[in-house]
Nucleic acid binder design. Sequence first.
DNA 1: TGGTTGACGGTGG
DNA 2: TCCACCGCCAACC
Length: 110
Amino acid sequence: MKARAGSTFAARVLAAVRRIPRGRVATYGDVAAAAGKPRAWRAVGNLMRNCRRADVPCHRVIGAGGRLGGYGGNVAFKRSLLLAEGIQVSGSRIRHVDQVRLTDFNTRAK
DNA sequence: TGGTTGACGGTGG
DNA sequence: TCCACCGCCAACC
């Protein structure tokens, strides 16, 4: 098969997202880096799209610069979830992203 | 097997 | 600050 790495990569991405503690977020680039492919943030979004499961806090994955990114069209719902976790969201932008951004979730966050 | 898509990132205007 | 174009990797058809 053409690069079954997807399985490993996907699993790593999901695992990384799962390691994101509540009230904390990570960008696609961070998740991709945690998966071992800092340049595969594109694929991360792809996997997230196909994810849609409660096991993974996909709503904690945001775009770079604090952008909400997307959520299958339910961006409003994603924003609500973030707000419920204590993350301040201003319009389609995260406030104090650097404050809630988790780039070190590779260290078994909590 | 090959081509297109996509919850994107970054730079430029 | 917002919009548009280009570049990237993996999954899907």
